[in-house]
């Protein structure tokens, strides 16, 4: 058995067994997987070389859409996911139409501006949005069944896991598809893309909408797990956190987004529990250490480790120098 296949399989198996083996981690892992899905959205854009410092916008829009839907008679988990995703897709299209004209720092700043406007609206329109305290999202029904807390949470966990795997697979496939390949060319050589007669903006827009939907689905899952949505969902620090997790996992790596989210949540919760006064400091130091000493993130460390264990494959890829490339290749194989 190839170790490179074995380890991801074991990891997925371990995740599937969390409710049985470590029930206390179940809620934490639901949140981590949900954030992982959202971070996939940010990761996707990183593959086109763009950093959004405002993707919490879509996370927030979808979460609020779900909360409004839950308060109406559309009170079903799957409907909430659909409403959230639709909200994220529509807003992704509208915002995307503007921001795909920009690159680099301007792209990041414009996204930031949109998200801060949405955040201010949430804060200000108290009678509609509940202001800074947000809206409650009562436990929805699941396909017409009203579940108790325990079975609902179990179901939500497996739903999050299934969505993580499904969407992760989809995102990886999409990046490998012709559109996805063109999308990544925005990073490497946008001019060439234009010479081919392909609109870089239209290509970027497609990826942007997909990334918005991913963020939105993550937002709905987090909102349902939490039972509340607040403007903090759309605040710039949340956007920063997503970029943080994407880099932590490994820039541009889809499995890295999930691994990063799990690592981040675990560090965050345990730092908050055992160093309540300095949890931000712990996270900040953790981030610095990763960037300075392992800039290719967790997947980079993993890749290097694998190269050591099974050097045959490493030798075959010797010409590929950067860890980033290693990560991408591995994804194509898993």
């Amino acid at each position: 058995m190839q170790i490179r296949i074995l380890i991801p399989v074991l990891a997925i198996l371990a995740l599937a067994l969390v409710p049985m083996l470590a029930p206390s981690l179940q809620v934490l892992m639901t949140l981590a997987l949900a954030k992982g899905i959202a971070v996939m959205g940010v990761t996707l854009l990183l593959r086109a070389g763009q950093v959004s410092f405002g993707h919490a916008l879509f996370f927030g829009i979808a979460a609020y859409a779900a909360a409004f839907a839950a308060a109406s008679n559309l009170d079903d988990l799957f409907l909430l996911l659909f409403v959230g995703a639709a909200g994220a897709a529509v807003s992704g299209l509208l915002v995307g139409l503007f921001v795909v004209r920009y690159r680099g720092i301007f792209f990041g700043m414009l996204n930031l501006a949109f998200s801060m406007i949405f955040w201010s609206v949430l804060e200000k329109f108290y009678h509609l949005t509940g202001g800074a305290d947000g809206l409650r999202l009562a436990r929805p029904e699941v396909l017409g069944l009203a579940l108790d807390r325990a079975p609902f949470e179990l179901l939500l966990y497996y739903l999050a896991l299934a969505l993580t795997l499904g969407l992760g697979w989809f995102a990886t496939r999409w990046l490998g598809s012709p559109v996805g390949q063109l999308f990544q060319t925005v990073k490497t050589n946008e001019t060439r893309l234009e010479y081919l007669g392909i609109s870089a903006q239209a290509t970027l827009l497609k990826g942007y909408i997909l990334s918005a939907v991913l963020c939105g689905l993550g937002g709905v899952l987090v909102a349902t797990a939490q039972g509340i949505v607040t403007p903090a969902y759309a605040y710039w620090i949340r956007s920063g956190e997503m970029v943080f997790i994407a880099v932590l996992g490994g820039v541009g790596s889809i499995p890295g987004a999930v691994a990063g989210a799990i690592a981040y949540e675990v560090v965050r919760i345990y730092a908050a529990a055992f160093a309540a006064d300095v949890w931000q400091l712990v996270l900040g130091a953790f981030l610095l250490a990763i960037i300075l000493f392992a800039p290719s993130g967790l997947m980079g460390i993993y890749g290097a480790l694998m190269d050591r264990i099974s050097p045959r494959r490493a030798a075959a890829r010797e010409e590929k120098t950067s860890a980033q490339a290693a990560v991408q290749t591995k994804e194509a194989r898993t």
Partner: peptide, 13 residues
């Protein structure tokens, strides 16, 4: 991205 994140980490600390 990494440059921005380094200053973000310093901010958190």
């Amino acid at each position: 991205v990494l440059q921005l994140l380094v200053t973000f980490a310093v901010f958190m600390i």
